[in-house]
Simulated scan of single mutants.
Amino acid sequence: MARTDFRTPRLCVTAPLAEGEAVTLTSEQTNYLVNVLRLGEGARVLLFNGRDGEFAASLARLSRKAASLVVGERTRPQETPPDVDYLFAPLKHTRLDYVAQKAVEMGARRLRPIVTRRTQVSRLNIERLTANAIEACEQCGVIWTPEVAAPEPLERTLAEWPAGRLLVFCDEEAPQRSPLDALSNARANGGVSLIIGPEGGFDEGERAAILAIPGVVRLSLGPRVLRADTAAVAALTLIQATLGDWPKPARMRQ
């Protein structure tokens, strides 16, 4: 049997979940279930809130503008997210939507926007960023909810860096060598964070400050310079394959 049911609609809610409870839906959630999916009363829906696990529920109190769900049995226990953070310079809307969704799909538990000297986007819509992250959870079977932090200057982020936390730095100036070898030799007992710069990259002062973090892994992503959103997916794939929650090849376990 598949671990995750992808045939049933899945919604993230804020209410506590327990068998027998009623959950009132937002107008957007009601519109999605009733008007877009055209579900009728009694239809099965899966719910999660990032705390209580995943529950089956049935659609009740049905109208075109208001509906609720009656919570049934728990279908999956709560999962702990991978201890992987994604630090990034904000991008323009379409590319930011994409990278928020893909980062969560790849197991980033926390999205941390950073402001660098070459950051081109001056304003960031946190609600939109959060909505895209939650949508990725709903569509991909993730039942933990990612944290979305407010933007902060890179200098503050580095000054407050926690001891023992691994920082993976995707640097287009790094010597080209196997990223798998670089990561498989790293230690991530205190968690791992990925940092990717803006279009145009970090300046020399920022690069030096990042490289001064104890235990930083400077990563090359190959002979081609990747766009920031592409680099995020590539780097998170490498991190999950070596340090994260993907099964490790035999050579990695030795």
Rank of each mutant, 00 (worst) to 15 (best):
D229V: 09
Q120C: 06
S193P: 05
A231G: 11
N49V: 07
L180D: 12
L154Y: 03
E19H: 06
A235N: 02
Y86G: 02
A22K: 03
I213F: 02
A149T: 14
P198C: 11
I195T: 02
R110W: 00
T237Q: 08
L124G: 09
R7V: 14
A250E: 15
R177C: 13
I114V: 15
A56P: 05
G190W: 00
A228I: 13
A188V: 00
P9D: 14
V104C: 12
K248C: 10
V121D: 07
A234V: 15
T4M: 07
L167T: 02
N125M: 06
V34Q: 03
L226F: 12
W144D: 14
R218V: 15
V84K: 00
V225S: 10
A100R: 06
R156K: 13
V192F: 01
S63Q: 08
A131G: 12
T130F: 05
F6V: 15
T119V: 07
G72Q: 03
K248V: 13
L154N: 04
T24H: 07
V192W: 00
L25P: 01
P249R: 06
T130K: 07
G164C: 01
C140G: 11
D85T: 09
P146I: 13
A188P: 00
R128T: 13
D181H: 08
M1W: 09
Q78S: 11
A67Q: 08
A250D: 14
P175F: 05
E173R: 10
W246A: 12
W246R: 06
S122F: 05
L211K: 05
T145Y: 07
R74Q: 13
I213K: 02
D171R: 01
F169T: 03
N49I: 03
V121W: 02
N185E: 15
S58Y: 04
T4Y: 11
P247Q: 09
C12Y: 11
L180V: 15
A131Q: 09
T230W: 04
K248F: 06
L219N: 03
L69W: 03
P77L: 07
K102I: 13
G141I: 11
D171V: 03
D97Q: 13
